[in-house]
């Protein structure tokens, strides 16, 4: 059974006024346990609005969100519980840090869950371990950390709630390549270690292509493409027509194809590219 199911969800800003805008239009999806769903789309395509429904921060104009088959908007208690079951980490999460020490800040979520002190301590230490923050940093002020450390501390604050589903909105935005690699690696490590479901919003097609099991492409509030990574990236031309960036290798193969070279256009990883080149060169050598 799907952990998270979204049925015909629409969200409209400024409903019943002249300025009503549909940020999300009739989106349906099913996320199975342990999957990594990549969400891609332009700024303003409705990705951020969509994901804020998953933990009940936004109430849909129509449609429903089911967690383990139960509508999270059924009553207030269920909506509140959804906040802890779906951990949401917003863009630039380091701006949410506020406590005196990193330890206290990470424990903010678990404390709100009214857990025992021992349990809180266990979760904080485990989350800090996941994001690679050494014990020495836990007693420091979060404002004294470096940019990358702050980001990781903030992500730990969400992980410490031990949510069944972890939603990360552009967790690598504004980081240098090494910082990006660190974050993505720790997300992958967290997922394999805990077996939890991860939803990753990203601009980078390469990251989604490499990490995700399924991909959702949002365009003007609608789910333009939704399926396994293979299904989505094999439609490179469609992605390009939506003005989205395709992985660099896909771009190379698309333009080779345009120039009349008989290659596949559904290549999106370096391994596939190498295989395709070998096939092509082998054919030419025979000819």
């Amino acid at each position: 059974m799907a952990v998270l199911e979204v049925r015909n969800l629409s969200h409209c800003y400024g409903a019943k006024t002249q300025m009503q805008v549909f940020a999300v239009k009739n989106v349906s999806l099913r996320v199975e346990a342990g999957e990594l769903l990549g969400v891609i789309g332009h700024t303003g395509s409705g990705k951020s609005t969509l994901i804020q429904h998953f933990n009940g921060l936004l109430t849909p104009t129509s449609g429903e969100v089911l967690l383990d088959g139960e509508n999270i908007f059924k009553d207030k208690a269920t909506t509140h519980a959804a906040r802890f079951r779906v951990g949401m980490c917003f863009q630039y999460p380091e701006y949410q840090l506020f406590e005196e020490t990193v330890y206290k800040d990470i424990s903010f979520g678990p404390r709100n869950m009214k857990l025992s002190d021992d349990e809180i301590d266990r979760r904080v230490r485990k989350a800090a371990q996941f994001v690679g923050l050494p014990d020495a940093l836990l007693e420091k002020s979060p404002f004294d950390l470096s940019g990358g450390e702050k980001r990781r501390a903030a992500i730990a604050g969400v992980m410490a709630m031990e949510p069944e589903i972890l939603v990360l909105d552009e967790p690598t935005a504004g980081l240098d390549p090494r910082g990006r690699d660190t974050i993505l690696r720790l997300v992958e490590h967290y997922r394999t270690e805990t077996g939890s479901t991860v939803i990753l919003v990203s601009h980078s097609m390469e990251d989604i292509a490499r990490m995700a099991t399924k991909a959702l492409v949002m365009n003007r509030g609608e789910a333009a493409l939704y399926g396994t990574v293979d299904e989505v990236f094999s439609q490179g031309d469609k992605l390009v027509s939506m003005g989205l960036d395709v992985p660099a290798v896909t771009r190379i193969f698309l333009s080779l194809h345009d120039r009349g070279v008989p290659v596949r256009t559904d290549v999106y990883t370096n391994e596939q590219a190498a295989a395709e080149f070998r096939r092509l060169l082998g054919k030419e050598a025979r000819a």
Partner: peptide
């Protein structure tokens, strides 16, 4: 934005 982020961490 900050309110959403803290609400997501269960702030009431």
């Amino acid at each position: 934005r900050i309110m959403s982020a803290q609400k997501a961490r269960g702030a009431d």
